[in-house]
Write a protein that binds this DNA or RNA. Structure first.
Length: 246
DNA sequence: AAACCTTGCAACCGCAAGCGA
DNA sequence: CTCGCTTGCGGTTGCAAGGTT
């Protein structure tokens, strides 16, 4: 590779793809001594690798709880929503997807989702010029486009590109600032539709907002508020009102 | 069959945050 | 407070495999 080597101060270290033997040495060592102390781990384990490389290999590949490949539609849907909310905060997104690593999600985003969303954004932009629709109508339209109801009342996630694009055409068209200021009529309507209690959300904002915008956003993610079908949240613009807390 | 192109993904790099001395 | 070290994160690279011409 045409780049400066990792941990260039230390010579004689292996680089590039890991061998099965190296993997086994690392697994055995961590099973015995636990994670951490990456700087000293290679020497202690007898690996000719830098600590960074060992850490990365363990976290992204060797950990026993890692799921690999076959990202489900549910996971994909969650990745898209979290990315809309948090941007390129891959580690935070990965934290909401058990068994998935930040690297895998980042790769999936760049190789699959970003291309798909790029094409859907053109359709989305056209819809920005449409008249605003009220929340109830929007929700019904969204459900019609996104979900197909089966005989037992359950729903399925979108499977075709058309359906996924349709989900992106849906916009909440509301100011989240209104929620924080206690727009009770709106909140009760939306709570009824989505099953989320904006009273709790307000409390969450007040509690975590005082520590700063990022803490508040992360707290909201932790508490599943991102499950709202608000696909177009943006950390800086839509949560801008939280700046007042910082 | 061979050359070229595209895609997926593991791995590397630089930077910044956290933490202890 | 500052300095140095370690760890974690996001961006980027380059290899290998599969697809296309």
């Amino acid at each position: 590779m045409g780049r400066k080597p990792c941990c260039s101060k230390e010579e004689g270290l292996n680089r590039g793809a890991w061998t099965a033997i190296e993997d086994q040495i690392l697994i055995d060592y961590i099973n015995l001594h636990g994670e951490g102390k990456w700087r000293t781990l290679p020497k202690a384990a007898g690996l000719k690798r830098c600590g960074k490389s060992c850490r990365l290999r363990w976290l992204n590949y060797l950990r026993p709880d890692i799921k690999r490949g076959n990202i489900t539609l549910d996971e994909e849907d969650l990745i898209i929503r979290l990315h809309n909310l948090l941007g390129n905060r891959w580690s935070l997104i990965a934290g909401r997807l058990p068994g998935r690593t930040d690297n895998e999600i980042k790769n999936y985003w760049h190789s699959v989702l970003s291309k798909r969303l790029l094409s859907s954004s053109q359709v989305k932009e056209a819809n920005r010029n449409d008249d605003k629709i009220n929340v109830i109508d929007a929700k019904l339209e969204h459900e019609t486009a996104l979900e197909s109801e089966s005989s037992d009342g359950s729903f399925t996630l979108p499977s075709s590109d058309e359906e996924i694009n349709a989900s992106f055409n849906f916009r909440m068209d509301f100011e989240i600032g209104e929620i924080s200021n206690g727009s009770e009529g709106f909140a009760s309507d939306f709570t009824q539709l989505c099953g989320y209690d904006f009273t709790d959300m307000n409390a969450e904002i007040c509690e975590y907002g005082k520590y700063g915008k990022n803490d508040c956003c992360e707290a909201m993610v932790e508490n599943d508020y991102v499950e709202l079908e608000a696909n177009n949240f943006n950390l800086d613009s839509d949560f801008g009102f939280l700046d007042a807390f910082s």
